[in-house]
Amino acid sequence: MHNTRPDGMAGTDEPSGVDQVFLSLERELAVFLRRARATSGELARAVHPELESAAYGLLVRLADAGQQRATDLAGYFGVGKATMSRQLRALEDLGLIAREPDPADGRAVLVRLTDEGHDRFSCVRNSRRAQYARQLASWDRREVAELARLLHRLNGEQDAEEGCGAAPAAGKSDRAGRGDRGGDGGSAGNG
């Protein structure tokens, strides 16, 4: 369990000389990310019982950005072509994605959600958003918007620092950093 006071500041049992604000931030992010990783598996299984948690983020990306090349997906998630190919093959075997020739380049292939993949993913995503609404019901909508804005800013700054240049459009920041791209706790590189 994390040890923060109600005002968000770390308790007094910390070593002196430590920046308490950043120590508190580190603790809260660690709790958030631990929960996000655990939730990722639950979300993946809700989409399909055989879906790996790491592949959930691919569904998020395809739902948000539309069809893409596998190489673009690999670059977005910061994984190798072999890892991306394995994850896409698993999603295809489950009937959640399909591959089609790229009309702009006959040598390339585009990956898209199938109707079944879209329906299953949308159902889980809508359920997750309803859960967020229940959990944050006591928050003012401006506070929720501010949290989303700050997370978007943090993700954008991490993207810029890492040089990946894959910052999402405003309102589409469903991720918690490079290890958790894809929102709702899942990613091609994580889960």
Rank of each mutant, 00 (worst) to 15 (best):
G177W: 02
G179F: 00
R112D: 15
L94E: 01
W139R: 10
I97L: 09
Q158T: 12
R128F: 10
R99I: 01
A10Q: 01
E50C: 04
G177Y: 02
G191V: 13
A63S: 10
Q67E: 09
M1Q: 12
G66F: 07
L110K: 08
A167W: 06
L73W: 08
V144S: 07
R142T: 12
P6W: 14
V60P: 00
G117P: 01
A130H: 07
S173R: 00
C164A: 02
E52P: 11
N126T: 06
A55K: 03
R69L: 04
A10G: 12
M84C: 06
K81N: 02
A90L: 11
F22A: 07
L73F: 10
R34G: 13
L88Q: 15
E42K: 06
R5E: 15
P101M: 05
D19M: 09
A74G: 11
E116R: 09
A44Q: 01
A65C: 14
K172D: 11
A169P: 15
R86Q: 05
S53N: 13
A74C: 02
G163Q: 00
C123Q: 13
L23A: 11
D64I: 09
T71K: 05
G57P: 13
H2P: 15
S85T: 12
R107C: 05
E42H: 06
D13C: 15
G183F: 03
R89L: 13
S122I: 04
E14Y: 09
T12L: 10
L147T: 00
A38G: 11
A170H: 07
E143Y: 04
G78N: 02
R34T: 07
W139F: 09
R37E: 11
V47Y: 01
V31K: 08
P6Q: 04
M84S: 01
S173P: 02
V79Q: 00
L58K: 12
E50H: 11
G117K: 02
R134F: 05
P6N: 11
E162H: 15
L151W: 09
G95F: 00
M84P: 03
S85F: 01
E100A: 03
R181C: 12
D119K: 05
R175E: 13
L73Q: 05
R149S: 06
L29E: 11
L110G: 06
C123A: 06
A46D: 04
R125I: 00
E146P: 01
T39M: 06
H2V: 15
H118A: 08
G186K: 07
D102L: 14
S187V: 11
A30R: 15
Q68G: 13
R69W: 05
G78W: 02
R175P: 03
G80L: 02
G11S: 05
H152A: 06
G163V: 00
S16R: 05
M1C: 13
V21D: 09
V60K: 03
L25Q: 07
R175V: 06
L88Y: 12
A65N: 11
K172L: 12
G78T: 03
R153M: 11
H2L: 11
G182T: 07
R107K: 12
D174G: 12
A130V: 08
V18C: 03
E92W: 02
Q135G: 00
D102Q: 04
H48G: 00
S53H: 07
G117T: 02
R27S: 14
A54F: 14
R34F: 04
G75K: 14
I97Q: 01
S127M: 10
A166R: 15
S138F: 04
A38W: 10
R178H: 09
